[in-house]
C-alpha cells in the first residue's frame, strides 16, 4: 500500500499513475479534498509546452508534450491551441518569442477568424497543438476517478512512521527540502459574456507573461504574476492593475467584466524551476512543479511510479539515500 500525502495536482496525479499501474494507494491531506487551500486550485491549466519553452529549460518542452494525452485519459481537455499576441509597441517581443519557440505558425489576417473578439492586433503566433483544461474540474475528476477505484481519502495528517510514503505537500514540505522556495502568483477570475475567446491568449508584456484562459459561459481566468516573494496574503494593487490592463488591452469590453475571484498563492519551486523527485530515509518527495503544475504533473507522476514500483531513476530523481 502506497500512501500519498497531499491532494493537490502533484499528489492526485501520482496516485492516479500508481493506481493505473495496479498499485494500492491511500491519500492523506489534512485540508481534505482539493480546494482553495492548494495552489493548483488557482492555476491556469494551460498545457502549453511550446509557449512555456520561451523562458524555461528544455525538459519543460519535452516532458510537457506528454501531458496532453495523459490528461485526456482523465478529464476534459480542450485542444484549441494558444494564441500569442503583442501590442504594436511590443512587436519586438513577439519576434523574440517566435525566435525562442517552435510549433507555431505566424498569423495576421487569420487572426480575425481565430478570435474575432481580439481588437487592434495585426500579428500573432498560433500554437495549434497546445491545449488547456479547467484545473478545478481536473482535480475533481482525478479525485472521483481515484475514489471509484477504491482509493481511500483521509482528511487528516498522515500517521508517523508510515511505510511507502510519497510526500507531495508542495511548499509545506520545505522542512525536508531546504532548497524549495515559494514564488508568488496572483490571478483573477472574471465574467464578461460580451467577449468571446475560445482559446488561451497570451499578451506579451515586458515583465509578466500575461494570459487569459476561457473557462466557458463568459468566465475567464486572468493570470498570472511571478514575484520572488513568499507573501501569500493579498494581491497588490499594482498586480491587479496590470492583470486588468492586459484584459482591457485585448478587448476594451473587459472593462465591464465582473471580478468573481482573486487568487493568491505560492508556487513551490527549486532553484532551476524544474521539479524533483527525492527518496530520503524511505520517503519519496515529489515537488517543485513551479508554474507547470498541470503541464509537468504527469511526467512527475510517471517518475515517482518508476521509482516506487520499479526502482527506476528517471531524470527528475536527484537524490536517493537512506
Amino acid at each position: 500500500m502506497y500512501s500519498v500525502i497531499g491532494a493537490g495536482v502533484a499528489g492526485l496525479a501520482v496516485a492516479s499513475e500508481l493506481v493505473s499501474r495496479g498499485a494500492a494507494v491511500q491519500i492523506f491531506d489534512p485540508a481534505g479534498p482539493p480546494g482553495p487551500h492548494g495552489c493548483s486550485w488557482w492555476a491556469g491549466g494551460m498545457l502549453a509546452p511550446w509557449c512555456e519553452y520561451e523562458n524555461a529549460e528544455e525538459p519543460v518542452l519535452r516532458l510537457g508534450r506528454e501531458a496532453i494525452g495523459w490528461w485526456q485519459d482523465r478529464t476534459t481537455v480542450a485542444r484549441r491551441g494558444t494564441l500569442v499576441v503583442a501590442g504594436r509597441r511590443d512587436l519586438p517581443d513577439l519576434r523574440r518569442f517566435a525566435r525562442r519557440t517552435e510549433g507555431f505558425r505566424e498569423v495576421d489576417a487569420e487572426l480575425a477568424n481565430l478570435e474575432p473578439d481580439l481588437h487592434g492586433f495585426s500579428k500573432g503566433l498560433y500554437f495549434e497543438n497546445e491545449a488547456h483544461l479547467s484545473p478545478r474540474k481536473a482535480l475533481a475528476d482525478l479525485h472521483a476517478g481515484l475514489q471509484a477505484r477504491g482509493v481511500a481519502f483521509h482528511a487528516g495528517e498522515a500517521p508517523e512512521g508510515l511505510q511507502n510514503a510519497i510526500d507531495c505537500r508542495g511548499l509545506s514540505a520545505r522542512g525536508a527540502l531546504p532548497d524549495l522556495r515559494g514564488v508568488k502568483g496572483e490571478m483573477l477570475v472574471i465574467r464578461c459574456p460580451d467577449v468571446t475567446l475560445s482559446r488561451p491568449v497570451r499578451l506579451l508584456h515586458p515583465r509578466i507573461p500575461l494570459y487569459i484562459v476561457p473557462r466557458g459561459n463568459g468566465v475567464y481566468m486572468l493570470g498570472a504574476t511571478m514575484i520572488e516573494s513568499e507573501d501569500r496574503r493579498r494581491i497588490t494593487a499594482r498586480s491587479m492593475l496590470e492583470l486588468l490592463s492586459a484584459a482591457y488591452a485585448l478587448n476594451p469590453a473587459f472593462g465591464e467584466a465582473e471580478v468573481l475571484e482573486i487568487g493568491v498563492d505560492l508556487r513551490p519551486a527549486f532553484p532551476d524551476n524544474l521539479p524533483r523527485i527525492r527518496r530520503i530515509g524511505g520517503r519519496i518527495y515529489a515537488n517543485g512543479l513551479y508554474r507547470h503544475g498541470y503541464l509537468l504533473a504527469p511526467a512527475l507522476a510517471k517518475g515517482v511510479a518508476d521509482l516506487a514500483l520499479n526502482n527506476i531513476h528517471s531524470e527528475m530523481v536527484d537524490e536517493d539515500r537512506d
Binding site: 522556495r181 515559494g182 508568488k184 514575484i227 520572488e228 516573494s229 513568499e230 507573501d231 499594482r238 532553484p271
Partner: peptide
C-alpha cells in the same frame, strides 16, 4: 519593492 516588506522575499534575497 515588488518583493514586499516583512521578509517575504527572504528566500530570494538570501540567494
Amino acid at each position: 519593492r515588488r518583493e514586499g516588506a516583512e521578509g517575504a522575499g527572504a528566500a530570494f534575497w538570501k540567494m
